[in-house]
């Protein structure tokens, strides 16, 4: 069953230089429990799409259906709670003047999850779930490393007990070793909690290892969508092939795959 359905959604921004079509007539579905990667370069419309799913932007046309109910501009707290976000830049995603616990707790307060007394316990549980010590809730974000901050960002989303998490380039600002650990954590959490991910990224190597399906965006249009396996073995669109061909690779097996794709018609 599809948890999220995007139906002919467009978004046009009115600017001084005329209208900009950020997203054009996009339709796709995300099944319960799957990880859909949304791939594209800057200006592809992937972030605009994410913001519409999150309710930060309203679509200019089309509708977004979540759990069978069309989402309107005014979402209920329950609808907001069901869709959460993990951001790209862990440095900016946490308020420097607020303790880690305070940031994670915000959703609990807004949605009224648990009694007031229970909330700190839930915050600590969320921190432990992402591999951080519970007493980190008293610390300020300044003392944390990039990887730790990103884990706090994940804990903040998880504390709200969402069904769908929009991951907006969640590891592209992290070092390689940290990125690998955070990606594993995200995978484990999805399995354990039956979460659904919309994973927005430009990194196809990451996509290959975390996504069930891939949606390729270019200039606001959905170029191609399909199972990860198929997209990487037999991409239909030249643009998809070009994207895969541009990925910097480290081992010979990868190089071989890239070269085969480049030679294909």
């Amino acid at each position: 069953m599809s948890l999220l359905r995007i139906n002919g959604v467009s978004k046009t921004f009115q600017t001084a230089g005329g209208p900009v079509h950020a997203v054009r007539d996009v339709s796709l579905e995300v099944a319960q429990g799957e990880c859909l990667a949304v791939v594209g370069e800057s200006g592809s419309g992937k972030t605009t799409l994410a913001n519409m799913i999150l309710g930060i932007l309203a679509p200019s046309a089309g509708e977004i259906v979540f759990g069978g109910t069309p989402l309107t501009d005014r979402r209920s707290p329950a609808q907001r709670r069901a869709i959460q976000l993990v951001q790209q830049n862990p440095l900016s995603a946490l308020n420097p003047k607020r303790s880690v616990g305070g940031s994670v707790r915000l959703g609990l307060d807004v949605y009224g999850i648990g009694t007031r007394a229970e909330r700190w316990a839930r915050v600590e549980a969320a921190l432990e779930e992402v591999g951080l010590p519970a007493d980190m809730r008293r610390r300020g974000p300044a003392a944390l490393s990039g990887g730790q901050r990103q884990r706090v960002g994940i804990a903040r989303a998880l504390a709200c007990e969402p069904d769908l998490v929009v991951l907006d380039e969640p590891t592209s600002a992290l070092d390689v070793l940290v990125q690998a650990r955070v990606l594993r954590l995200l995978n484990d959490l999805r399995r354990k909690k039956g979460l659904t991910y919309v994973f927005i990224t430009h990194d196809l190597a990451v996509v290959r290892n975390v996504a069930d399906r891939v949606a390729v965006f270019k200039s606001g249009r959905l170029e191609e969508i399909g199972p990860t396996e198929r997209i990487f073995s037999a991409p239909e669109q030249p643009y998809t092939r070009a994207l895969i061909g541009a990925v910097p690779v480290v081992d010979d097996a990868e190089l071989k795959l890239r070269n085969t794709l480049a030679e294909a018609p």
Partner: peptide, 18 residues
């Protein structure tokens, strides 16, 4: 070696244990 292993591969060999 850890650094090399940590890089996700487009061949899809799964996420490494780091």
């Amino acid at each position: 070696r850890a650094l090399m292993d940590a890089v996700p591969r487009i061949t899809g060999v799964g996420l490494p244990e780091v």
